[in-house]
């Protein structure tokens, strides 16, 4: 029920945005999104509403952490 997916903003007109994920397009409402998104941003969509604008830097940071760990062949975890 709390299923929500990240989708990319393609177009914004007023309170409505066109979002897309891997070819699937949808119109969603922006009434309750935490930060006003721009075209190209990813937002988390739930039941026809955008809830959250994804902070790209924050997302990259956590992925970079894992990439660094994988890049190391040391004994970080082994």
């Amino acid at each position: 029920m709390c299923l929500a997916v990240p989708m990319e903003i393609k177009k914004i007109s007023g309170n409505i945005a066109l979002v897309e994920y891997e070819g699937a397009k949808k119109e969603v409402r922006l009434d309750i999104v935490d930060q006003q998104p721009a075209v190209g941003d990813y937002v988390i969509i739930h039941a026809g509403f955008a809830l959250h604008r994804i902070d790209e830097e924050e997302a990259k940071k956590s992925l970079r952490y894992w990439e660094e760990i994988l890049a190391k062949t040391d004994e970080t975890f082994e």
Binding site: M1, C2, A4, R29, I32, H46, A47, F49
Partner: peptide, 17 residues
């Protein structure tokens, strides 16, 4: 109108509209 805190704000926005 069922759902937790995730869903309830969307329903609230619908009532406002």
């Amino acid at each position: 109108a069922i759902g937790f805190e995730t869903t309830a704000p969307a329903i609230a926005a619908t009532v406002l509209e």
